[in-house]
């Protein structure tokens, strides 16, 4: 659809275009403020001066899903919060990515009971999982850089 149809398969032009688009997407990916629990505090620490996130263009945490590209699910997702999470994910415009920060949203973490969703990938598709309880701010930054690598490998068709 869209760009690929119009340009056809022009080879070099589309790959250079992809590179440019992906580079600009990784340059300033705005995260949505979705800190739920303890991992949110480490996310705030990553935001602050010692481990700076603004060198990745991420100093603005947009509270509104309509203005953000990246949802960093930081913390445990309870069954009451799950519909809210899905609704916010649906409200984010394409292209969007999800990082599951911490053990609780990757796999349920320490908790294995009626109240916690065991893994946020049951609710939204996750691109990068970051392990740790809570992961160090360097861990979060490593996860973000992994996501950037993944984005650089994307083609235009993924989000067109």
């Amino acid at each position: 659809m869209g760009v690929e149809q119009k340009l056809g398969n022009l080879g070099v032009v589309t790959t250079t275009l992809e590179k440019a688009v992906n580079w600009s997407r990784t340059g300033a990916m705005w995260p949505m403020l979705f800190g739920l629990a303890c991992c949110a505090i480490e996310m705030m620490s990553a935001q602050s001066a010692d481990y700076d996130l603004s060198r990745f263009g991420m100093e603005l945490m947009r509270p509104s899903p309509r203005q953000s590209d990246l949802m960093i699910v930081a913390g445990r997702v309870s069954r009451k919060m799950a519909p809210v999470l899905r609704r916010l994910y649906d409200q984010m415009p394409d292209p969007k990515w999800v990082i599951a920060m911490g053990d609780c949203c990757s796999c349920g973490g320490v908790f294995n009971n009626y109240a916690i969703v065991p893994g946020v990938d049951e609710i939204v598709p996750v691109d990068v999982y970051i392990a740790g309880c809570p992961p160090r701010p360097e861990g979060l930054i490593h996860g973000i850089l992994t996501l950037h690598e993944k984005v650089r490998g994307e083609t235009l068709k993924d989000w067109a």
């Binding site: 899905r86 796999c107 349920g108 294995n112 009971n113 009626y114 109240a115 065991p118 893994g119 990938d121 049951e122 609710i123 939204v124 598709p125």
Partner: peptide
């Protein structure tokens, strides 16, 4: 008498079996 809601833990020996059953989200 209310259950804990314990989910079976995914080890390497039952990884694939649980992976098939787990309700992953579509985009």
């Amino acid at each position: 008498d209310h259950p804990l809601g314990y989910e079976e833990v995914q080890f390497s020996f039952n990884f694939d079996e649980i992976d098939r059953r787990k309700p992953y989200a579509k985009g």
